[in-house]
Design a protein around this nucleic acid. Structure first.
Length: 150
DNA sequence: GCCAACGTTGGC
DNA sequence: GCCAACGTTGGC
C-alpha cells in the first residue's frame, strides 16, 4: 500500500466539502507527472493526505483513501469549478482521475510551516523548492511522522 | 498582489 | 530540437 499527498484549494474544494460528500472524483488534473502517478501507481486502498493549498493556512487537513483506480477524466468543468481541456479522443484518453473517499480530518491542520520546521521532513517533495505537483508520493516514514505531529 | 519556479506552446 | 514567450501554481 502506498501513501500520497493530494492538493486542493480549500475555497474551491476543501476537506469539509469532501466530508459532506463522502466521496469525490479527483478530476481536473492536467499535469503529466501527476497523471502518470494517478494512472500507473495509485491503487485502491492507498491512503492520501488531503492538502490545502493556495490559502491562508496551507497544510495537511485530512486523510482520504483511494476508492476507485484511474479512469478517463472527461469532465470539462471540474471539481475546482474551472474549465479544463478534456480528452479529445475518447478512445485514447490523455487525462485520468481517481475517486477518493473521506476518511477523517486531522485534529489540527499540520501547517506547511510546521512541516518545514521538521528537519527529518526536509526531503519531502512537498517542501522541495519549486515543487508544484498536485499529486505526489509520500513515504511511510513521512506519513507516520506527520501523523505524530497531529 | 507579487513573483519564483516551473510547464507548455509555437516559431524557427 | 532549441528557446523565448507565455501561462500556471502556490507560498508569502
Amino acid at each position: 500500500m502506498a501513501y500520497w499527498l493530494m492538493k486542493s484549494e480549500p475555497h474551491e474544494f476543501s476537506i469539509d466539502n469532501l466530508k459532506e460528500k463522502r466521496r469525490q472524483s479527483w478530476d481536473g488534473v492536467r499535469n503529466y507527472q501527476a497523471r502518470n502517478m494517478m494512472r500507473d501507481d495509485m491503487k485502491k486502498g492507498d491512503l492520501a493526505f488531503f492538502y490545502h493549498s493556495n490559502c491562508k493556512e496551507p497544510g495537511v487537513a485530512g486523510i482520504v483513501s483511494i476508492c476507485k483506480e484511474a479512469y478517463p477524466d472527461n469532465i470539462t468543468f471540474g471539481r475546482k469549478g474551472k474549465e479544463v481541456k478534456g480528452n479529445e479522443d475518447p478512445d485514447n484518453p490523455t487525462w485520468f482521475m481517481v475517486d477518493v473517499q473521506y476518511k477523517r480530518k486531522l485534529k489540527r491542520t499540520i501547517k506547511l510551516s510546521d512541516i518545514k520546521a521538521e528537519s527529518t521532513l526536509k526531503n519531502m517533495q512537498l517542501v522541495r523548492k519549486g515543487n508544484r505537483l498536485s499529486v505526489m508520493p509520500v513515504s511511510k516514514a513521512e506519513w507516520d511522522h506527520i501523523l505524530s505531529m497531529e
